[in-house]
Simulated scan of single mutants.
Amino acid sequence: MTDFLRTVLRTDRCLLRPWRAEDTPLIPPVASTRDISWNTSFRFPHPFDETAAKRLVRWSRDGAGEDKWQFAVFLDGELAGSCGTVRGEGVEAHTATTGYWLDPSLWGRGLATEVVTELVRYMRDQTAIEQLTATCFGWNPASRRVLEKTGFRLEGVRRGVVRKWGRTTDLWIYGQWL
């Protein structure tokens, strides 16, 4: 865990590092948008307040570098979003689930692809995880493109299993061997 907490990853435009307690006040202004929440599970609340931010940071540091690899993403010194993985349990302990979110004002610039590419590289080169899984909602084709550009392959579509805020859509499931 200690070594992971000192990890710093760099892409052409972004810096990725584990979440720190002092990041807590930076999170709500970026994360508290319906656009992000719309494309994430109910564990990502809307509004995203300071209590949720404290919970995120505390959760990300519990098992950091062993069962979780969660990164704050910075662009030009400002918080831009997050990406990370969580180890599977039991017979799936050699796998991890991948997720990411970015400030909607940064969407469409290729940053998510850049960040997820670096996350995949890190997981391949620095962990014993053998396979990554990622999901996205049917109404989010941009996220599907990010996953496909970063080496994930479509493994299946579960029809009509996502219901959020009165709307139903499909869940697209992607995987990548490392």
Rank of each mutant, 00 (worst) to 15 (best):
R13E: 02
P47C: 14
E22M: 06
C83K: 03
A53L: 07
W38D: 13
D3T: 15
T11C: 09
L75P: 10
D49N: 14
W19E: 08
W59G: 05
V120C: 09
G108S: 01
T85M: 04
M1K: 07
T150G: 07
P104T: 13
W38F: 13
V73L: 11
P18N: 07
M1V: 08
R87E: 03
T113C: 11
H46I: 01
R153F: 03
V161G: 13
T7H: 12
R17Y: 10
A21L: 12
Q126K: 01
R158E: 14
K149A: 08
S143F: 05
P25F: 12
R17V: 05
E22F: 09
L5A: 09
S60P: 05
G110M: 15
F74R: 02
T117A: 00
R121H: 01
L111I: 14
R124T: 14
T51W: 12
V146M: 04
T33E: 10
W172H: 15
G63R: 02
L119E: 04
E155P: 05
P18E: 05
P104L: 13
E130K: 04
R121D: 05
E114S: 14
G65H: 12
F152A: 04
D170W: 08
E22I: 11
V161N: 11
T7V: 15
P104Q: 14
